[in-house]
Simulated assay, not measured.
Amino acid sequence: MVENAFENREAKPSDQSIVSGLTVPLDDRGVFQGYASEPGAFDERDLKVTELLCAHATAALDRLEKEQELKRKKQPAFAVCQLCQPRPPESARRCQRLCIS
């Protein structure tokens, strides 16, 4: 958290209107950054809320990646099920449950 970019040697804002900032990592995905034009715009509560929101966003992205991976893994199995058509109704339903769900 940077309260005043003009008083912080490490802060190098790309725009002179950026005075204070808040940076929270998103695991290995990058960072979330919030900026304000007035000094001291962010406090510890802002930081905690932002960290919580970023943790939820990262968890949601992780879930989406896992769901996509599962779908990719099921596609070959579904293709095998399609090759085995036609079959008796009960075994076809069982195959659909295994391949599609």
Rank of each mutant, 00 (worst) to 15 (best):
Q96S: 08
S37P: 02
N4K: 01
L61N: 07
P76V: 13
A5Q: 00
G30Y: 04
P39G: 06
R9C: 06
S91E: 15
C95I: 04
S20E: 06
Q82K: 10
V24Q: 05
A11T: 07
Q16R: 10
V2M: 05
D28C: 00
A5L: 04
R87Y: 11
V80K: 09
L22Y: 09
S37Y: 03
S17L: 06
A36W: 00
L47H: 08
L47I: 07
L98E: 13
K71D: 15
T23K: 10
G34S: 14
Q33F: 01
G40Q: 07
P39N: 08
D15Q: 07
P76E: 14
S14K: 06
R97Y: 03
V31T: 09
E69L: 14
C84L: 15
T23I: 12
S101D: 14
S91H: 11
R93N: 09
T50L: 03
E67N: 11
E44C: 08
G21C: 13
T50Q: 03
R72K: 15
L22F: 11
E65L: 06
E7W: 01
P89F: 14
A92Q: 13
I18G: 02
P88G: 09
K66P: 00
F32C: 12
I100L: 14
E90V: 06
E51C: 06
F6Y: 12
R94I: 11
G30N: 01
Q68P: 01
